[in-house]
Structure formats: C-alpha cells, structure tokens
Amino acid sequence: MNSHRFSWFNATSLTLGFVFLYLPILLLIIFSFNSSKLVTVWGGFSTKWYVSLFQNESFMNAAFVTLKVGLVSATIATVLGTLAALVMTRAGKFRGRTLFSGMIYSPLVMPEVITGLSLLLLFVALGWDRGFWTITLAHITFSMCFVAVVVSSRLITFDRSLEEAAKDLGCTPINAFLQVTLPIILPSVVAAWLLAFTLSIDDLVIASFTSGPGATTLPMKIYSQVRLGLNPEINALSTLMIIAVSVGVIVASILAKRAEAKQGLD
C-alpha cells in the first residue's frame, strides 16, 4: 500500500515539473507589476502598465479582433466539427469514408506554415480582401478537426439505444438529436468549443498569413512589439490573457463536472 504514499521522490518530481511549467509564467506576472521600464530589473510595485495598456488603442483593437475571431470561429467550428463527428461515428461504412476521416484529421498533423500558406494562396486566387473573415475562415478550418476529435471520442461510447428509444417514443431524427443526444454530449461539445476558442486566440502563424490591414490579432501584435524590444505593457497584456484563459478553463471544467454528476453515467 506504499503506492498511495507521497514519497520524497514524488514530491520532488512534482515540484520540478510545476516549476518548469509555471516559473516563466509566474515571472511574467510578477514583472507586469514592475514600475521600472526595464523589463528585467525590479523597480517596485506598480499597476501603471495596466493603465497605459487600456489607453493603448492599437492593443485594444487587436484584443477586440482576437476575441471576435475566437468567438465566431469557435462557434462555427464546433457546429461543423460536431456534424463531422456524427457522420464518422454514425454513418457506418460509406464510399470514401476513410478519405473523409483522413481529410478531417489531416490539419492535426499539417505544419501550420503550410496550412497558412495554402490558405493565403487560395484567398489571393479568389481575389478576396484579407481581413477579419479570412482569419476566421482559416481558424474554422484548423480548429474544426480538434472539435471532431473531441466530440467523436464521446460519441463512440454513446449508447445508440438512447437515440433509438427517443425515435421509438415519437421523435424525428433531428428531435432525437436535440432532445437526447445533444444534452448528453454537451459537456464534450462545450469542451470542444473552448479548445477551438483557445486555439484561435493562441494562433500566430496562420493569422499572419491570412490577415490583412486593419485585422491584427493579439498574438500578431505582441510578436511585432517584441521584435521592437521588450515592453512592460506586453507583460500586463499577457497576464490578462492568462487570467482570462484560466478562468475560462476552470469554469468549463466545473460545468462539465457538475453536468456529469447531475446525469450520472449513462
């Protein structure tokens, strides 16, 4: 019964692991409250960089674009990805099934640079003006496959007789999905949405290829700023992003836990 004990070896490896993962982030958060303009020298506590950040219009614009792209692309990707997952787990064998699933999963392994470049070529060939919608489309394309993976892994274990019971009791196939399947797989769908949202907020490479004038996302903005030299405002901005993402993840996992506890295991 030794395996349940918290041995010194376990404690050390856990600590080392956490330090490795979170020390850089912790440093970033600490230095965002640094009053000195020099990023690496501590000059006392201050929140002035947050104030100046909120007064910096180009940062706020980038943040707004990022959020908008994230919300729109995550929502559309969730719908499309869920539909793809349904087809892959439900349709049984059909002509081209392997090709279809391979094509859905390929963006997972495709280098981002290539995805970005090919999308750029496509948009240029179509003569579309690059901006908000091209970034959003690009994000839908690559985050959809993550949604499909998350949702289909839930659907594989889903008891089909629940849907059959719903149809047996008078539901049309669409009604059966909306009233029975969707509520039960909802935690996975929400998780998939959050994943898509995070991927979108996070993305630099594909956004760089597909953005145009007036549609700069936050990662792009940060990257271009960093090239001009480190700026304490970036630390403040990054801290806010970390807080936003952490809150989102924690809320989502609490929701998922609650939903699961409420429903029990099916």
């Binding site: 008891d159 629940l162 047996d168 009791l169 295991l265």
Partner: peptide
C-alpha cells in the same frame, strides 16, 4: 404505434 423496451433500458440519463 409500436413501442419497445430496450435491453439496456435506454433511460435518458439527463
């Protein structure tokens, strides 16, 4: 106008 009782019962968990 046929109803079925499933082997797994298929009760809606939610």
């Amino acid at each position: 106008s046929v109803n079925m009782m499933f082997q797994s019962y298929a009760l809606f968990p939610h």
